[in-house]
Every structure is written in C-alpha cells, then in structure tokens.
Simulated scan of single mutants.
Amino acid sequence: MIVIEAFQWILDNPGNFFSAFNRHVLMCAISLGIALVIAIPLGFLVARSRRGSFIAINIAGSLRSIPSLAILSAAMPILGIGLLPSIIALVVLAVPPLLLSTIVGIREIEPSILDAANGMGMGRGDILWQIEAPLSVPSILSGIRTSAIQLIGGAALASFIGGGGLGDFINAGIAIMNMPRLLVGALPIALLAILAELLLGRLERSLTQRR
C-alpha cells in the first residue's frame, strides 16, 4: 500500500519528481566524468612507480574509509551549499575506487608481455596504448561500477548541503514522517543502483572474457 501511494504521488507530481530525478542523475554523471578524468590518467602515471603507487593507494584507501556524509559535510563550510559543492564532494567520493582499480589493472599485466613488447622495439607510448590500456580496461570498469553505485547512493546525501536530487524526498519523508514520500526518493535510487550494477557488471564480464 505504501509503495502504491508513492507511485501515486509521482503520477500526481511528475514535474517535481522528474526535476529531482534529472538533477540526481546529472550530479552522478558529472561527478563520475570528472573523477574519470582525474583518476585514470593519475593511475597510469603512478602504477609503474613503486613509491608513487604506494602513496596513491594509501591516500585512496584513506579517502574510502571516510563516510559519504562526512565528505559532504566537510565541503559545506568551505564551498557553501548548492550543486557545485555537492559535485566536488562526490568527485572525492568517486576517485578512490577508480584510482585503485586503474593501478591494479596495470600492475596485474604480466611482466613478460611488457618485456616482449620492449624486445620488439615498441616505445613507451605504444606499450601504453596498445597493451596496458586495453588489458587494464576490465579492472577499470570494475572501479567505474563501484564508483557509480557509490555516487548514486551518495548523491542522496547531497540534499543535506542543498544539492537537490532524489534525496530531497527522503529528507522530506523523514521530516514529516511520511513513508510514501520517503519511498519516492528511495525506490528510484535503489533501482538506479541495481541498473548500474547490472549494466556495468555485464560489460565488465564481457570485456574480461574477450581479454
């Protein structure tokens, strides 16, 4: 009955719902895109350096241990409230899994493959684009899947710092003790996370088999 009431509210208020839904997806997409631009090049840069990868892995591990709400709360006194600080906080949330998966993907490549490439006279750039990048794609996709799911859930908390999105319905439902209103936000977030898991997981398995 509560779920039916939630769907009825969506049908009665499509403008409010889809405005929040689109903002939620936009926050996740922009944050993931920025995180990809930061984490993947950085991962390729430090992966072959013992010291560099050690520092990067430890920093990423430390950031992963910080709760999502703490990252968002820390952004508020520095950057204020609204969409921009929410995106910046979500980027901080998304970078660690991407960085770790990129480093792992490169370091799992058999050294004999790289030795053979060097023996064939391939340059550093050729090895990067023709060997390291293709072979590390499945691992990178695993990081993208993890980051995407974390962002979909973390973006719900962006409502606390004025980011908007589906989290507004959850907060409103809690504030007025209205379960249907809470589910208006919670159910789409859960469905988005499941969809991201299924699609990216299938793509990852497909590329792993090809590899």
Rank of each mutant, 00 (worst) to 15 (best):
L45H: 05
R124D: 14
G80C: 09
S68T: 14
P77W: 13
M120Q: 11
I81S: 10
L36R: 03
L128G: 05
V46M: 11
I40V: 14
V46T: 02
L26H: 03
R23K: 14
I40S: 07
L99S: 05
L100P: 03
G61S: 14
I66R: 02
M27S: 06
V25W: 13
L32F: 10
I34P: 10
G43M: 01
A116T: 06
L32S: 02
L72Q: 02
L36K: 01
R107T: 12
L100V: 14
L98A: 08
S31M: 02
G125H: 07
G82M: 05
H24I: 01
A89C: 09
I71Y: 10
I109A: 08
L100G: 02
H24K: 08
A94K: 05
L99W: 09
N118R: 15
S49A: 06
I34F: 14
R107K: 14
G82I: 06
I66A: 11
N58P: 13
W129M: 11
L72E: 00
I38R: 12
L36E: 02
L72F: 04
L26G: 02
V25I: 14
I87L: 08
L93H: 00
V37P: 07
S62W: 12
V104R: 10
D115S: 08
L42E: 00
A35K: 05
A39T: 03
S101Y: 12
I87K: 01
L32W: 04
I113G: 02
I30A: 08
I55Y: 14
I81E: 04
I78Y: 13
L45K: 13
I87F: 04
A116V: 05
L69M: 14
S68W: 01
I78C: 03
H24S: 03
S65I: 03
L72D: 02
P67F: 04
I55K: 08
A74P: 01
M76Q: 14
G123P: 08
L114F: 09
P41T: 06
S101M: 09
L98H: 09
I103H: 02
V92E: 08
V92I: 15
I78H: 02
S53I: 00
S53H: 01
N58H: 13
